[in-house]
Amino acid sequence: MTQTVMHLDDTDSLERFDAALDALEGHLKRVFADDSAEADRAVLAALQEQVRVLTEERDRLLTDLEAERARVQRLKEANEEVSGRLEGVMGALKDMAPALQD
């Protein structure tokens, strides 16, 4: 399976998602707190279910995001290690080059 790397500001996206979810939750709390509301309870229950699903999805996305951040960190560390080894080999080859020309 091929994964596509997207260059998005994940922090901004997560903050926007959280803000939208918080706004929806706040609205639902106000609707349910208003005893005189004539809104259809089935519609409100469906909205509550959507909030629950969105909350679960946000939690899954956060878990995935943290896993990807950890993966990126491991890749950066591996890159630094390989770069260091290559620099060492290149230095050794440069040191050996004059001796090979003699």
Rank of each mutant, 00 (worst) to 15 (best):
Q50R: 13
G26Q: 02
R74P: 04
Q101V: 00
P98N: 00
V53T: 13
E68N: 03
A33F: 05
T63V: 06
A70V: 02
E49P: 00
D35F: 03
V43D: 15
A70W: 04
V72G: 02
L28K: 00
A97W: 11
R85W: 03
R52L: 11
G88E: 11
H27K: 13
D18S: 12
M90K: 13
R85P: 06
N79M: 12
E38W: 01
T55N: 09
G91C: 01
A19R: 05
V53Y: 11
Q101T: 08
L93S: 10
A67S: 05
R60C: 01
E49W: 06
S13C: 07
L65F: 00
A19P: 00
A97D: 15
S36M: 09
D12E: 13
E68M: 06
A97H: 12
E87L: 13
Q50K: 12
L75F: 12
L28I: 12
G91F: 02
A92P: 02
E25K: 15
L62I: 08
V5L: 06
Q101Y: 00
T4N: 13
G91V: 04
R30I: 10
R30D: 15
L86D: 06
R69G: 03
D9E: 06
A99E: 14
D35H: 09
D40G: 03
L44M: 14
S83V: 08
R71W: 01
R60Q: 10
D10V: 14
R69N: 07
D102T: 10
V31I: 09
V82F: 11
L47H: 07
G26W: 02
A67Q: 09
D34W: 02
E80D: 14
V89S: 09
D22N: 15
A67P: 03
K94I: 09
A23L: 08
M1Q: 11
A23W: 05
R85M: 07
D9F: 04
V43R: 09
E66D: 11
D18K: 09
D12T: 15
K29S: 07
R60F: 06
G26I: 00
M6A: 10
A33K: 05
R16G: 03
M90Y: 10
D22I: 09
R30V: 09
T4V: 14
D34E: 07
S13E: 04
L93A: 06
K94S: 08
E80H: 08
A67D: 11
L54M: 15
L8A: 07
D9R: 03
D102I: 01
D34T: 01
R85V: 05
